[in-house]
Simulated scan of single mutants.
Amino acid sequence: MQEAMERAFPPDNVWGKPPDIVQGDSVKGLADAAVRIDQTYTTAMQHHNAIEPHGTIAVWSGDFLTLYEPTTWVYGIRNAVAEWLQMPREKIRVIQQFVGGSFGYKGPAWTHVVLAAIAARQVNRPVKLVLTRRQEFAGVGYRPLIQHHIQLGATSTGQLTALTHHAIARTSTFDNRVVAPVERTSRKIYACPNVTTTYRLAPSNLSGPYTMRGPGETPGLFAIESAMDELAYALQIDPIELRLRNYADVDPETGDPWSSKSLKECYRQGAERFGWHRRNPQPGSMRNGDRLIGWGMATMAYDARFSGTTASAQLFADGNVLVQSSTCDPGTGVYTQTDSRSAHYIRQATLTYSPELGTSKE
Rank of each mutant, 00 (worst) to 15 (best):
A4K: 05
R7I: 11
Q23G: 06
R36F: 05
R36I: 09
I37P: 07
I37D: 08
H47I: 03
N49F: 15
H54T: 08
L65Y: 08
T72F: 03
E83M: 08
Q86C: 15
P88V: 11
E90T: 00
E90A: 04
E90P: 00
G101R: 06
G104Y: 02
T111A: 15
E136L: 04
R143F: 06
Q151Y: 00
G158I: 05
A162I: 01
A167C: 04
P181E: 02
T185L: 10
R187S: 00
R187C: 06
P193T: 02
N194S: 04
N194H: 13
T196V: 01
A202S: 03
G208H: 03
L221I: 10
A223P: 04
S226Y: 12
S226W: 07
E230T: 07
A234L: 14
Q236P: 00
D238G: 09
I240H: 01
L244M: 09
D249V: 13
D251S: 00
C266Q: 03
C266S: 01
Y267V: 06
A271C: 00
E272R: 11
H277A: 09
R279S: 07
P283R: 02
D290E: 08
I293A: 01
G294L: 13
M297N: 14
M297C: 15
M297E: 14
A298W: 03
A298K: 00
T299S: 12
M300G: 14
Y302I: 01
R305C: 07
S312R: 13
Q314D: 09
Q314A: 13
C328Q: 15
T332A: 14
V334I: 15
H344M: 15
I346D: 09
Q348I: 09
T352A: 10
E356S: 15
K361S: 14
